[in-house]
Computed example of a mutant assay.
Amino acid sequence: MSTVRKKGGPACCSCLSNQEAPVASILRCSNLTTGMDDAEIAELLASSQVRRHVFAPGEIVFHDGDQPHSLYILLRGEVHILKDTFSGRRIFISEVNEPGDMFGEVYEVLKRPYDIYVEAAKETELLEIGSRFFTLSSQDESPSRSALLVERNLMRIFARKAYFMHGRIKVLASGSLREKIVRYLFQNMDTDGHVELAVSREYLAAYLAVTRPSLSRELSAMQKDGLLKVEGKNLHILDLERFEEYL
């Protein structure tokens, strides 16, 4: 999942927001089927268990401890990835709110039980793709091109997630909260010093491993100090030279 949407970035595929679109059209916009033509997507769907599900707000997609058997692609709505502590406190880990975003694939590939749970934040429609989607190549002596493309695309997806985590480690290795914020924004701002957040403050606080009130206070302090201007999800760096002193 992308944590920011850079100014001038590509828009989401329109087919993903169309509830009446066929499954093949939805998959055509997914990173999982990059490089496939219509015939190969149809071939893949014929060999897979693909279902649509609609979840009401507050409904659980899967529970902590469940054994994975699918991956999920968001068609519309929003889900939150959560974890409960032993004392019962709910920890917000991430959110998925961009049509076409995928989640659950790492657990499915590794065949490890979920150590988180996913809850619909609003009415949400998901495309569930069963395990056979990942095991096509092991079922045939001569894997089809579509099966090989799925394997290649999964490797690219995992590589992007690893790169994302590498960036987060660099942010978390910073000393103060202000340094963490500066490094995060510096990684994601455009050439004009502008960052448009594609996530909530709650998600950003979880990403930075701080509380939401602490994040809000520090952003307000940075704005008061003339470092940046905050307008909703749009942040503008006002003094780049001073800003870079915190890197």
Rank of each mutant, 00 (worst) to 15 (best):
1 M>K: 06
3 T>G: 09
4 V>Y: 09
6 K>L: 15
6 K>V: 14
6 K>A: 13
7 K>C: 07
9 G>D: 15
9 G>Q: 13
10 P>K: 15
11 A>S: 13
12 C>P: 08
13 C>R: 09
16 L>G: 00
18 N>P: 00
23 V>Y: 04
24 A>W: 12
26 I>M: 10
31 N>D: 11
33 T>F: 06
34 T>H: 10
36 M>H: 05
36 M>R: 03
40 E>G: 04
40 E>F: 05
42 A>Y: 07
43 E>D: 14
43 E>G: 15
44 L>K: 02
45 L>H: 04
45 L>E: 11
49 Q>V: 09
51 R>N: 11
52 R>A: 07
52 R>K: 14
55 F>T: 01
58 G>L: 04
63 H>R: 14
67 Q>N: 09
67 Q>L: 13
72 Y>Q: 04
74 L>H: 07
74 L>I: 03
75 L>G: 03
76 R>Q: 12
77 G>Y: 04
81 I>A: 03
82 L>H: 09
83 K>C: 08
84 D>T: 15
85 T>Q: 11
86 F>H: 11
86 F>G: 12
87 S>C: 05
88 G>D: 06
91 I>P: 00
95 E>P: 02
95 E>W: 02
96 V>M: 06
99 P>M: 07
101 D>L: 00
105 E>F: 01
105 E>A: 03
106 V>G: 00
108 E>F: 07
108 E>S: 01
113 P>S: 08
113 P>L: 09
114 Y>D: 00
120 A>W: 00
120 A>L: 03
121 A>M: 05
124 T>S: 13
125 E>D: 11
125 E>S: 14
127 L>Q: 02
129 I>Q: 03
133 F>L: 06
135 T>G: 04
137 S>E: 13
141 E>T: 08
143 P>A: 05
145 R>L: 15
147 A>W: 06
147 A>T: 04
148 L>R: 12
153 N>Q: 09
155 M>F: 11
155 M>H: 10
156 R>K: 13
157 I>A: 10
158 F>E: 07
159 A>I: 07
161 K>W: 05
166 H>A: 14
166 H>R: 12
167 G>K: 12
168 R>G: 00
176 S>L: 02
177 L>K: 01
178 R>Y: 01
185 L>K: 03
185 L>R: 02
187 Q>P: 00
189 M>I: 04
193 G>R: 04
195 V>T: 14
195 V>D: 05
196 E>W: 07
196 E>R: 10
197 L>T: 05
198 A>G: 14
201 R>D: 10
202 E>N: 08
203 Y>G: 00
203 Y>V: 12
204 L>R: 02
205 A>M: 06
206 A>M: 02
206 A>N: 03
209 A>Q: 13
210 V>I: 13
211 T>P: 02
212 R>Q: 15
214 S>K: 12
216 S>P: 00
219 L>Y: 04
224 K>M: 10
225 D>L: 11
226 G>C: 07
227 L>P: 03
234 N>R: 15
234 N>W: 06
235 L>W: 04
237 I>M: 06
239 D>S: 13
241 E>H: 08
242 R>P: 06
243 F>K: 09
244 E>G: 00
245 E>V: 08
245 E>N: 14
247 L>E: 09
